[in-house]
Nucleic acid binder design. Structure first.
Length: 571
RNA sequence: CGGGGUGUAGCUCAGCCUGGUAGAGCACUUGGUUCGGGACCAAGGGGCCGCAGGUUCAAAUCCUGUCACCCCGACCA
């Protein structure tokens, strides 16, 4: 490919509304352009990268036994009403009407459509298990799109759905997909972790996320430094604390005239936050609920949401409700002496404390030497808190560390959630109608492009991992327009490289060397060959890897062997 | 949805307070010089100042409305 025929669209200045490295570099390198909030065009250069990701994903899905199909991006309302998600999906669903005023949505995901296909086309257990996938543009009307294509409203996703008659079959496919995902991200040269995850609104039981490790990631993941335990912090558990020691102190009231927060109380009473219990009053559908946490821990709202007492949603109690229930303002609530009608649920670590400090349910007063059972009723113990770095891993091996990640893949087992509501049925060996169980498996194809850049860039631009690079080799003949013999040599080398199967971009613009080098480094082509009259006379070609400090001269006759050795042929 | 901000040339922005013929740098075109790390000189092209009303002899500038976009939060596979 010649730069004179391939619009590079690079820009020197940093665009105003680019917040992260990948967003900035994708705009500067001319990969994408914004059309509206969270909606981007893929320019030729960006599309080449997107296609490379797709190719790897497609190849590995096919290798894993999945079958490709393509479903519509626009879907009728009726289908979504069957699953109940026309209402439930909320504002994330982009709705629209056709000329007959029939309602449609732009598909944010395709469970409904795939179930519709399977229920119409698959009749017999002999056709199962079946895994279908597509690579498709999706639209989710995110409240706040940001970071370019990382959290866009319109994005490219690979989604796969598997159908099974029994759990063992689903487990097998789930494992196959897990392995295929690991192979995909390994092939793309990304540093990633597979982590246990919350299945969220998709619903279901078992779920793993594939997180590309990056400082700018929106998710926090916890992993053991000595085992392969890894989980999203939404879900991660710490090892349970040792049993509670017996009480050794008497309960004592202390005046805390102005101290409301844990930090103020611990400073005033000269105790550590680990010896305090903080109490949160929540308003649930059925009444007030008190949750107790150790002073240095934070409530994990996803874990809390799974408590039976909080089914159907909850909010923090208002100041008035707190005052009415505990006869103390916010800041002085504690588990001792709360009305019996309020269940007290303590996090495991809070429940393991003896002789702790807590609010006294009286204005400007705290308690020291408080103990569960003796002083405070304990309805139940649960895991309620978010893990912190340094917690012991739940498998007993090592300590948890916390890193940030970009979610690029998510696999779920979702039971019969969709097949039941969508009335998918197949006949089993006995001729009995069975509702299949399903798994679903997503990969954020366009997000991977951004994630790869987050992991691979420097101050000059992108540094593509070879499998993602839009071109493998940048061929730069310096001042070629001045030298007919250089022109001839450059064209010959270009053709030779193309014939050898490499993706080559030759810069035939009449540019000075500086801008040429800068452009090729910005767009991140991993290998650079420079030809000049000087090198021609010396019978060499200059080679420099994108990460190399210095270029090296390769004898012209050795070049082919050199490249075969250092470059992988494109997929 | 709440709070804050911005809309002026392809990009980054000045001009607005204090109304009076539309600006700079970068990018682009042409000519010349330069030529291994984002050159220089000269000459050009390019803007209904987001949109709609209003005030005024006169509006990018003041007023009202509206739309879009950005940031923080809430929210969110």
């Amino acid at each position: 490919m010649l730069t004179s025929r391939f619009p590079l669209c690079t820009i020197k200045e940093t665009p105003a509304d680019a917040d992260t490295a990948s967003h900035r570099l994708m705009l500067r390198a001319g990969m994408i352009r914004k059309l509206a909030a969270g909606i981007y065009s893929w320019l030729p250069l960006g599309l080449r990268v997107l296609r490379k990701v797709e190719a790897v994903v497609r190849e590995e899905m096919l290798r894993a036994g999945a079958v490709e199909l393509l479903m519509p991006s626009v879907q009728p309302r009726e289908l979504w009403e069957e699953s109940g998600r026309w209402e439930k999906y909320g504002h994330l669903l982009l709705r629209m009407q056709d000329r007959k005023e029939q309602w449609f949505c732009y598909g944010p995901t395709h469970e409904e459509v795939i179930c519709n296909i399977v229920r119409n086309e698959i009749r017999s257990y002999k056709q199962l298990p079946l895994t279908l996938f597509q690579i498709q543009t999706k639209f989710r009307d995110e409240i706040r799109p940001r970071f370019g294509v990382m959290r866009a409203r319109e994005f490219v996703m690979k989604d796969a759905y598997s159908f099974h008659l029994d759990q063992a079959s689903l487990d097998t496919t789930y494992r196959v997909m897990y392995d295929a995902y690991a192979r995909i991200f390994t092939r793309l040269d990304l540093k990633f972790r597979a982590v246990q995850a919350d299945s969220g609104d998709i619903g279901g039981d078992l779920s793993h996320e594939f997180q590309v490790l990056a400082e700018s990631g929106e998710d926090a993941i916890a992993f053991s430094d000595q085992s392969d335990y890894a989980a999203n912090v939404e879900l991660a558990q710490a090892a349970p604390p040792p049993p509670r020691p017996p009480p050794s102190q008497a309960l004592k009231r202390v005046a805390t005239p102005t101290q409301k927060t844990i930090a103020e109380v611990t400073a005033f009473l000269r105790v550590v936050p680990q010896q305090c219990v903080k109490t949160l009053l929540l308003r649930s559908k059925t009444g007030l609920v008190a949750l107790c946490l150790r002073g240095d821990h934070e409530l994990n709202e996803i874990k809390a949401g799974k408590l039976p007492e909080l089914q159907g949603g909850w909010t923090l109690a208002t100041e008035a409700e707190v005052l009415a229930a505990s006869s103390a303002p916010v800041g002085f609530i504690g588990p001792v002496g709360l009305p019996a009608s309020i269940p007290v649920i303590a996090d495991r670590d809070a429940a393991a404390l003896a002789d702790f400090v807590c609010g006294a349910n009286a204005d400007r007063t705290h308690l020291t030497g408080a103990n569960w059972e003796r002083d405070a009723h304990l309805t139940r113990v649960a895991d309620l808190r978010s893990v912190v770095a340094g917690d012991r891993s739940p498998d007993g091996k090592g300590q948890l560390k916390i890193a940030r990640g970009i979610e690029v893949g998510h696999i779920f087992q979702n039971g019969r959630k969709y097949t039941e509501s969508m009335h998918v049925g197949v006949l089993d060996e006995q001729g009995k109608l069975q509702t299949p169980i399903t798994g679903c498996y997503g990969i954020g194809v366009s997000r991977i492009v951004a994630a790869a850049i987050e992991q691979n860039h420097d101050e000059r631009g992108i540094i593509w991992p070879q499998p993602l690079a839009p071109f493998q080799i940048a061929l730069l003949p310096l001042n070629m327009h001045k030298s007919p013999k250089l022109q001839t040599a450059a064209q010959a080398l270009h053709q030779e490289l193309v014939a050898a199967g490499f993706d080559v971009l030759m810069d035939d613009r009449e540019l000075r060397p500086g801008p040429m080098f800068a452009d090729m480094e910005l767009i991140g082509i991993p290998h650079r060959l420079v030809l000049s009259d000087r090198s021609l006379d010396a019978g060499t070609v200059e080679y420099k890897g994108r990460r190399d400090e210095k270029p090296q001269d390769i004898a012209r006759q050795d070049l082919s062997a050199f490249l075969q050795k250092h470059l992988r042929l494109p997929v």
